[in-house]
Structure formats: structure tokens, C-alpha cells
């Protein structure tokens, strides 16, 4: 078939797939985002049965599937688990490259969250480094209310 039309131009139909969404985040995540927006506090959840602390919060324990209803406050400080530096642009990126993004285990939590790492020399990025959350001035009750995590400067 391709042979018959090889001298012609291939044809395309161009367009978009555009779909607007308004997600309800649910009760627990609403509380999580409101605590960040109103008090600059990052919360996790603690499973009342197996006692693990999960962040971002889930309404069901990821280990024992017990129901979880209440948040526990975390310090906003944590440890870098892993990271990368993005050097390429894409249609979905929220930051201009180069920027660092990592998986951060907050003190007292058993799971880790993904977020940006700012105010850092990329060469100094290292698993295990201590980080603390920096919040945006204007906060809209979403994950970008946390501006990024930055290295904790004062040792000890």
C-alpha cells in the first residue's frame, strides 16, 4: 500500500485532547493541604494498628490496610533519600531546568515524599543530607505551597 503513494505526502489530522478536571482530594488530603496553607505545617498519618507514619497521608494503611482518620504533625525536616537534577525542558515541568528534585523522608515518617530541592549547589546533593521545608508566601492549598526543601545549614 505504501508503495502506491510513495511520491505523495503523508496526511495527518492535527488537534488536541483537552480535558478539564476538578479533583476533590477528599477529607484527609483537604486537612493536609489546609495545615500547610494556614500553618506551614506538614502532616502525616499514623496507622492506629501498626503505628507506621505515612506521608503524603492516605486514609488506608499501606501495610496493614487499617483505616486511618487522623493526621499527626511532622517537623518539616527530613533526610534526602534520592534525587536527580533535571536538565531538559518538558511540557509538564513546573520549574525551569536545571533544577533538583528528590525523595525526602521526613523525620518521624516511615515513607517519603517527592518534592523539589532548592537553595542547593547541585554538586553538594547527597543521599542522607538533612533538609527542611520552605513554604511559598502565597499558598493555595496544593502541593506547590511547599516551595522546596533546602539543606539545613546549622550543624548540630
Amino acid at each position: 500500500m505504501a508503495n502506491e503513494v510513495v511520491k505523495k505526502e503523508p496526511m495527518f489530522t492535527e488537534g488536541y485532547v483537552i480535558m478539564p478536571y476538578k479533583y476533590s482530594v477528599g477529607t484527609l488530603a483537604s486537612k493536609f493541604f489546609i495545615e500547610i496553607r494556614d500553618h506551614k505545617k506538614i502532616n502525616g498519618v499514623k496507622c492506629p494498628k501498626c503505628n507506621i507514619v505515612i506521608v503524603p497521608p492516605r486514609s488506608v494503611c499501606i501495610k496493614c490496610f487499617n483505616k486511618i482518620e487522623d493526621l499527626v504533625e511532622l517537623s518539616g525536616k527530613g533526610t534526602l533519600v534520592t534525587y536527580t537534577v533535571a536538565h531538559y525542558d518538558s511540557a509538564v515541568q513546573a520549574m525551569k531546568p536545571p533544577y533538583a528534585i528528590g525523595v525526602i523522608k521526613l523525620d518521624g515518617a516511615d515513607t517519603a515524599i517527592t518534592h523539589f530541592i532548592g537553595e542547593v549547589d547541585f554538586k553538594e546533593l547527597k543521599a542522607g543530607m538533612k533538609l527542611e521545608a520552605v513554604f511559598n508566601e502565597t499558598r493555595n492549598a496544593n502541593i506547590l505551597d511547599i516551595k522546596y526543601f533546602k539543606p539545613v545549614k546549622n550543624k548540630g
Binding site: T82, Y83, T84, Q93, I101, T114, A127
Partner: peptide, 24 residues
């Protein structure tokens, strides 16, 4: 979509973090 998508994460960034953890 609730806690992560707005960060602009894609599979390459996530894979890079997995590769880094694997190396470490």
C-alpha cells in the same frame, strides 16, 4: 494527581531518582 503531579514529574525524572538510589 493529589500530591505529585503538579511537581511536573515524568518517568525520566523518576527513573533518574531510582537509578541514583540504585547506585548509592
Amino acid at each position: 494527581h493529589i500530591f505529585t503531579r503538579m511537581l511536573g514529574l515524568d518517568y525520566t525524572l523518576a527513573a533518574a531518582m531510582q537509578a541514583r538510589r540504585y547506585m548509592d
